[in-house]
Design a protein around this nucleic acid. Structure first.
Lengths: 224, 224
DNA sequence: GGATGTGAAGTCGTTCACAGCT
DNA sequence: AGCTGTGAACGACTTCACATCC
């Protein structure tokens, strides 16, 4: 069995997926540097993880290496991208054009090529259109939220980035669900529930900063 | 022992800290709604976690509840804030004024009050000053990165937000360390190493999106 | 009576160590 | 000989269940 990409065991830890993304970055570097082959120990060193961890992570999805040799960099990279689904283009919409939403829009060029923001929505487009377009080289039209279902279909949107005030989050999520947008990345600190088959990931800056604050507050210097 | 805030067991899981942040949000809501007392079961329901988890999380830091009653909302909230260190003001600097860095700056009003961006740095301030200030109501002066040590002291900066290209990340981190800035929030997808006593948290959008992409790609609809 | 605080059990993820290929 | 792939040991976090206390 070589390079199978279906799951062997049904449950893959989320941490494994995050590491796959990291391996992917490291492999791109190695590839650019012209490396042909890499061992799990070398890759592990570069990614700061245990080498058995690398092998276990990959083992969830098949056998990608050659015993006594290692992994072919290009092959492993494309295998991982296929596993992650990051070998296709993902089209995204931002909902909510406040500070956060327009920040996301202006940030968009920084995203990897295959993640594309192709639409922007707000409850009151006239109010925000000036501010948003002034922040962008080529302005993107801000549409009224009510058009989301129609536009989602037209522009093949698969992921929604929620950047509204927290109080509006669940309502917006319901609209996304109705529009058949199955992936949600939520930036507003409020919990969302969606039906089976939809996926929500949260990015709460306050939580991350609280985490940093905790670690900074509670660090005890080593006892000399 | 009531409301002690020193650690009973030395290792607190990171997940516990993240949940504390979540409890904090929920308690603020409850407080605004005028609730005086809350049980672990009620709080757990609101935060979508197990009620024993709530009690275990709190148990790392002391005893905050009253048996047979529950927790006083206001007291628990302020205890958690004290534990997290989120009851003080944290002053932050952004380093790197590309798309991402200026997005962070324009986003700053969205952050909770006590996390403040008080400085912005770049390797080439003249080049970016126009673009950045045009994006902001009241512009913030962008300073040359070489001034970071001096400014860190003057403005009491404790956290640095790294928003440079990945290749520059370690160099910037070294400067932050030298300037005595102990907390780093890194947005550029590259690993950082810092000396003992410094803290790094990463926020890699690509990793999060890869994660979403994986879940969307691999969802299997329930067998009818 | 009722909800907390906590040892014990259970679950999940990581690391070890070596058998099995190349 | 060398490195992968993997069962088994280990460790960490979560959940259970109940003794404890208000």
């Amino acid at each position: 069995m070589k390079g199978v990409t279906t799951l062997k065991h049904s449950k893959v830890p989320e941490a494994t997926i995050r590491r796959l993304s990291r391996y992917s970055r490291c492999l791109e570097e190695l590839d650019e540097r012209g490396e042909k082959v890499v061992s799990s120990a070398q890759l592990a060193g570069k990614c700061a993880v245990n080498s058995a961890q690398v092998r276990k992570d990959l083992a969830y999805f098949g056998e990608f290496g050659i015993r006594g040799v290692g992994y072919y960099v290009k092959d492993l990279l494309s295998d991982i991208k296929r596993i992650l689904g990051s070998n296709k283009e993902w089209r995204m919409a931002v909902i909510g054009m406040g500070n956060l939403g327009s920040a996301l829009l202006s940030y968009k060029d920084f995203l990897k090529q295959h993640y594309k923001i192709v639409a922007a929505f707000d409850i009151d487009p006239p109010k925000v259109i000036g501010r948003v377009s002034e922040k962008l080289g080529k302005p993107m039209e801000v549409l009224h939220i009510s058009r989301i279902k129609e536009v989602a279909k037209d522009r093949k949107i698969e992921i929604g980035l929620i950047a509204t005030p927290p109080s509006e989050v669940q309502g917006v999520a319901d609209l996304l669900v109705e529009a058949g947008i199955r992936g949600i990345l939520n930036f507003a600190p409020a919990q969302i529930t969606v039906p089976e088959g939809f996926v929500v990931k949260n990015v709460f800056f306050t939580t991350i900063l609280d985490n940093l604050a905790y670690l900074l507050s509670n660090y005890r210097p080593p006892q000399k």
